[in-house]
Amino acid sequence: MSEKILQIENLTVDFDGFRALNNLNFSLDTGELRVIIGPNGAGKTTFLDVITGKTKPTTGQVTFKGKSTKGNVEYQIARLGVGRKFQTPRIYLNLTPRENLELSCNRYKNVWNALFGKPSSAERRTVAGLIETIGLDAKADLKAALLSHGEKQRLEIGMLVAQSPDLLLVDEPVAGLTDEETENVGNLLLALAESHSIIVIEHDMEFVRQIARKVTVLHQGTVLCEGSMDEVQNDPRVIEVYLGKQEDDRAAA
């Protein structure tokens, strides 16, 4: 499948004169797993904000599954099939993991259904399965506020899966996790990549190497280069802006 699920053309975002994104072009094939790296302030998070409708582009357009997302707000874009995981886990702390997952799993998200709908047995089974997958069986009915950081990260990824989006946007999924947890999350993402298109933003180069097939480097709000991990690492421009200049080489290595 070489159909494009996401296409971004000439995207510019201006915050009061500060160009967070500058004439950015990007496209993602259906079923692709793409990692985006870039130094702090390169515009990575703004990039996700624009795709999910949180930030309106100044110029340029985003096309998702062949349709422009212009004029849609966050929840409409989410319903089109874009799921987003935040850098710090965002879950409903006063609900249990089971309830968290149920809310994401629910297909009919209007007010009427919230009042009169009941979770179907298929949904309940999906939720039970997910709880097992993310390893929270024992804590499924505790308040999510009591979970550890790693468990919250897993819960949020579980919520993303429950939403069953076509495109997953994952912002630094392994920040603050142990090596073992990092590897688990990596395997989870690789498993998800078999049936979803995924964009991962990451700083942890070990982790990028574990999961990346194709890497995009952002710098100053625009795409610096694209390619496999090896190509990117040997690109002199990348070495200069991201991995450090010659004199910093030793420190970076």
């Binding site: 799921g83 006063n94 809310l103 209007n110 979770p119």
Partner: peptide, 30 residues
Amino acid sequence: LTSGRSGRLLVAVRDDEARMRFSGYDPTMF
């Protein structure tokens, strides 16, 4: 109102409205 799904959604508004939006709910109507 506060039991079942609608109750959980009310708590969800209190806990994290942004999460709700990105999960496809429109918090405004709730």
